[in-house]
Amino acid sequence: MATQASLDNPPQVPSQTSSTGRGFPTGLAVLTGFTGVMLLAASYMVFVYAPMERTLGNVQRIFYFHVASAWAGALAFLVALVAGIVFLINGKMQWDRVGKSSVEVGLMLLTITLTSGPIWGQYAWGNPWPAWDPKLTSAAVTWLSYAAYLMLRQGIDDPRRRARFAAIYVIIAFTSVIFTYVGVRFVEQTIHPHVVGPSASTGEGDFGVSARIGQTLGFSLLTFTAVYATLLAHRLRLENLSERIKQVKSAVLARQG
């Protein structure tokens, strides 16, 4: 009965989020629709507009979304790193939610990279996963590190400690990824083609980037950046809503109490 009474007369809850809490934010709806259109356009460019690659044929078309999802994944982990550092400096829980959401979206994007890569590799190298290649190894390790990040979060109950430890771990994880990625790349010969930066002539399945291929790749990169931003916004909205529910719950309980 007491619950009924307090629900009829909702308690004042400190509002942390700027959203009304009711209905779907218009800005997010527009962003989602825009990203959807971009994904359709990117698919058209990848499958129709981009020319058939001479040596690899249609399989080469995997490359556009492969590179784009890898880029967006890297961006997601960079955002999580920045959010972690900012949280350790100012201690605002909002940054913890940004970090967690960004890692979740980044893991999804990196999964796309890690599944599309071997399909391409099977045709280009005749082997889906050449052992000990630094780029492949570091991509897999990145995935595992950030999966471990989510497991670390699950293992801690106190929200502030969880936020602090997650921020610490994300900093160490990013450092280790940099070491496996950049450090080893300079030492080891990779057979993975470099899309960005100087391309070693030893790369097998290397291809010259023609104008249409370049445009398609550029648009795919933009599209996946938009996909990342949209998913992050959705994920963050959910986090904020669930945080708000927690606050309302504890306010109701306090009133009864």
Binding site: A148, G155, D157
Partner: peptide, 20 residues
């Protein structure tokens, strides 16, 4: 050390980092 089930979690947290 501060987590639930730390014996399980420790290697999972450490090994991907230790690879570098």
């Amino acid at each position: 050390a501060y987590t639930r089930g730390r014996e399980i979690l420790m290697p999972i947290l450490l090994l991907p980092i230790a690879l570098s």
